[in-house]
């Protein structure tokens, strides 16, 4: 009896936790607008398929959508995609770790020394809007045509939003919380680890999300431009071999990978918030 009560008690919260997500998903899936949007996309692909198949559009310009989609499921392509993802995400992960290691202390420094924060905030904002990826020829010369350059370029693009958000996160920690810590005679280090950092985590995570997206985009862009690395190279390699269907397949694959990553990171951000 007691076992039965425990089991139902265990199950109840699980049901409660999963139902809002499920109900939201079901609600979205049942929306006629979602079906309409999907139907339009399929119809457009169908029209393109017909135009290309009937030679109204040359296959040297646009590949048959069916060929491009079928290419995604070929074992050879899947293997290559997996290897490319592993390489690109490895580079992104390395850059992101460096960004976090540099940006959070830098953000904290700018928060603790407001005069430096005031001096550098304009520069950081300008760098945030600057075409950082254009620096890659310089770093190709300085570091070489290797993965370190890709990591560094990813780092250079991603570190700025994290510094900006980290500073903002520390600046917006309620003074009351810090005063509570002081009233308990906590050291500065304890106040940072137990109060400031947890309180600023949601905002810092927004910065990390932006940093991650910037890093991924920059690394893929440079991989494409220099024909090296993982996902970006998959596209450029096929394009330079004039494999039109393969180029479209690779573009679809990179698009799917970045959309999936974006969805995961957005979901994680919502959870953190």
């Amino acid at each position: 009896m007691s076992q039965a009560i425990e089991t139902s008690a265990d199950r109840a919260p699980r049901r409660r936790a999963s139902s809002p997500f499920l109900s939201r998903f079901m609600k979205k899936a049942a929306d006629p607008a979602v079906f309409f949007g999907l139907a339009v996309v399929i119809a457009v692909l169908g029209i393109v398929e017909w135009l290309v198949a009937s030679n109204y559009i040359s296959r040297a310009v646009i590949a048959l959508p069916s060929d491009a989609i079928a290419g995604l499921f070929s074992p050879e392509f899947s293997g290559e995609l997996l290897r490319a993802c592993r390489l690109t995400f490895g580079l992104v992960a390395a850059a992101l770790v460096l960004e976090i290691l540099v940006a959070i202390p830098a953000g904290y420094f700018l928060y603790r020394k407001p005069i430096f924060g005031a001096a550098y905030e304009g520069w950081l904002a300008a760098l945030f809007a600057a075409p950082i990826f254009l620096l890659y020829p310089l770093f190709m010369v300085i570091i070489g045509r290797n993965n370190y350059t890709l990591v560094f370029m990813g780092f250079a693009a991603g570190v700025i939003p994290i510094i900006i958000h980290a500073r903002l996160a520390f600046m917006t920690v309620p003074e009351t919380l810090i005063n509570v810590g002081r009233s308990f005679h906590l050291s500065n280090s304890a106040i940072f680890w137990k109060i400031i950092l947890p309180s600023g985590t949601p905002t810092i995570f927004s910065g990390i999300r932006l940093g991650l997206i910037y890093t991924l985009i920059n690394i893929i862009a440079i991989e494409f431009l220099v024909d090296a690395g993982g996902l970006g190279r998959m596209v450029s390699d096929r394009y330079f071999r004039f494999d039109i269907a393969g180029t479209y397949t690779a573009i679809c694959a990179v698009a799917l990978v970045s959309i999936t990553l974006n969805l995961i990171v957005n979901r994680l951000e919502k959870m953190v918030r």
Binding site: F224, V235, I251
Partner: peptide, 30 residues
Amino acid sequence: SGFFRRAFEPYIHALASMPKIIFLPIIFLV
């Protein structure tokens, strides 16, 4: 239009978050 927004906005957000440079081969071909 709420209907069309719900239908197409997810695609716009998805495309917006992608590295546009990978579309360069298509742009060059077209």
